[in-house]
Amino acid sequence: MLSHLRTMWLVFIHLFRKKETIEYPEEKVALHPRYRGRIVLTKDPDGGERCVGCYLCAVACPVDCIALQATEDENGRRYPDFFRINFSRCIFCGFCEDACPTYAIQLIPDFEMGEYNRQNLVFEKEDLLINSQGKYPGYNFYQVAGLEAGVKKKGEGVNEETPVDVHSLLP
C-alpha cells in the first residue's frame, strides 16, 4: 500500500520536471558528434578522396552491406572506383569506421533516412562523399604511409629518411 502511494507520488512530481519529449520533426534533436547515423566518405585536408579502397570496412561489416572496387590514378594513388552502401541492410554498428585506417568512412549524427522505396537506400559513392574532413581534421594517410602516390615523394613523409642510395656501401 505504502509503495503504491510512493509510486503515485513519484509519477505526480514528474509533471513539474523539464519536458524530455520534443516536437519532432518541427523541433530537431541535438545529437553528440559521435552518434552513429548516416555514413559518409570524407576528404583529405588537401581535398583528395580519403578512401584508399582497402576493403577493410567491407570485411568488417557484419551484414556485408559495403561493396567497392579499388582503382588507382596515374600516380598510383588508390581510390574507390565505386563505393556502395546498402543502408537497408546497415545496422549502424560503426565497425566500418573502426576498421578504416584512413578516417575516410565516418558515421555522422544524421538519422533521417526514411524512404518509401527501399531501393533509394542504396547509396553510391556520389551520395556518400562529402566535402569535409569530418571528425578527424588534419589526417592524411598518404603522408604517413610508405608508398609514393603523388602526395609526397619517397622519403618526404612523416618520419621518413631520404631514400637509400643503393650504390653506396658507406655505413
Binding site: V63, I66, A67, R84, N86, Q119
Partner: peptide, 16 residues
C-alpha cells in the same frame, strides 16, 4: 568465410 559485400554488390540493380 570473410567474403564481403554480399548484400551490396548487386544492390544497385535490385535492393533485394
Amino acid at each position: 568465410h570473410r567474403y564481403s559485400g554480399r548484400t551490396a554488390m548487386l544492390s544497385n540493380l535490385a535492393v533485394s
